[in-house]
């Protein structure tokens, strides 16, 4: 009744399976395996181009930052310095700065003053050793300056690629956006391996040696604050800032995520972030939210303050304010 199938496995074939292996089938199988093996080798050939030291056993066995002993960390940081020296010709001082007691950092930005000159975005690159092709390539900067039409704060119609002869333009205003160091940070919540977390002083950091590069945090961040190393970072010897730290601006490996840390290698050392220092209009205010007398608390208590995307519930530690 059923049409006879054009059978793949006829009873005769099955018969052979029960018989001991004949010399002929053995040779056939061996030949097929050889061809397969040759194909596999050819397919994997690009792996030969892997730089030596790109992946070491030490890397593979390294534990999460928060589980490292002080000695391990010291050894690892020395290794990072060695590697940077070997590859870039500059020996950095890689430090590990811990959060300070009684400190929670906050940042405020004066939208009335900002003129959209993008000096902060460039200073960020210089400070944080991001990958870049040339001095004009600010794609990896942690700061994106938005040009907005006056009359509303409408991100939908914003422009980051604005390039007029002179800023500010009359009918525009400017809004730099960087990591908001959210109190309820979606990025740390979604990371499957806890490679990114909030420190005691509120800074959201990434362990570049632990991140698996799944980019779930990038999808989760409502502020487009995270960057991914799609390639091995490109940076010239002259451009390297040798004052580095493990959790912030050391040269990143390929395939991991990075982000603004409020320059923790500076701010945990009593200095201001690089973007603040370079701002020509003094639009940026940085300080300790736990210190009632800090300038940042003065702003929060006395100015009209705007929180970006408040409806998402991230509770940023970054605020915008207006003069008039």
């Amino acid at each position: 009744m059923h049409p006879e199938p054009q059978n793949e496995v006829s009873p005769k074939t099955i018969e052979q399976v029960y018989q001991p292996l004949t010399r002929r089938t053995f040779l056939k199988g061996a030949a097929a395996s050889m061809v397969g093996l040759a194909g596999l080798t050819a397919a994997l050939k690009p792996l030969l181009e892997l730089e030596s030291g790109a992946i070491t056993l030490d890397d593979l066995l390294q534990k999460h930052y928060r589980e490292l002993s002080a000695d391990d960390l010291k050894r690892i940081m020395a290794g990072i310095a060695d590697k940077t020296e070997k590859e870039h010709g500059v020996r950095p001082a890689v430090r590990d700065l811990k959060p300070l007691d009684g400190v929670e950092f906050g940042y405020a930005l004066n939208l009335t003053r900002c003129i959209g000159c993008r000096k902060c975005a460039h200073a960020c690159l210089k400070e944080n050793n991001q990958s870049r092709d040339d001095a004009n390539d600010i794609e990896m900067s942690y700061i994106r300056v938005l040009e907005l039409d006056k009359g509303a704060i409408n991100l939908e119609t914003s422009n980051v690629y604005y390039d007029p002869a002179k800023v500010p333009q009359k009918d525009k205003f400017y809004m730099p956006v960087q990591c908001q160091q959210c109190r309820q940070s979606p990025c740390t919540k979604v990371c499957p391996v806890q490679a990114t977390w909030q420190e005691k002083d509120g800074l959201v950091v990434v362990d570049y040696n632990w991140c698996i590069g799944c980019r779930y945090c990038m999808a989760a961040c409502p502020y487009d604050a995270r960057r991914f190393n799609y390639q091995k970072p490109t940076i010239t010897k002259e451009a390297i800032n040798p004052n580095q730290s493990y959790l912030s601006n050391r040269i990143r490996p390929k395939g991991v995520v990075e982000k603004c840390t409020f320059c923790l290698h500076r701010t945990r050392d009593g200095k201001y972030p690089a973007c603040l220092e370079v701002c020509p209009t003094g639009a940026r205010v940085f300080g300790n939210l736990r210190d009632p007398n800090s300038e940042i608390n003065y702003i929060l208590n006395n100015k009209r303050v705007y929180v970006l995307k408040e409806e998402v519930g991230t509770l940023p530690r970054f605020y915008y304010f207006f003069d008039k």
Binding site: L60, P192, W210, I212, G213, C214, R215, V257
Partner: peptide, 10 residues
């Protein structure tokens, strides 16, 4: 994954 070599972390 950007770092498939670290998949054990998961």
């Amino acid at each position: 994954l950007g770092r498939p070599d670290r998949f054990l972390h998961m």
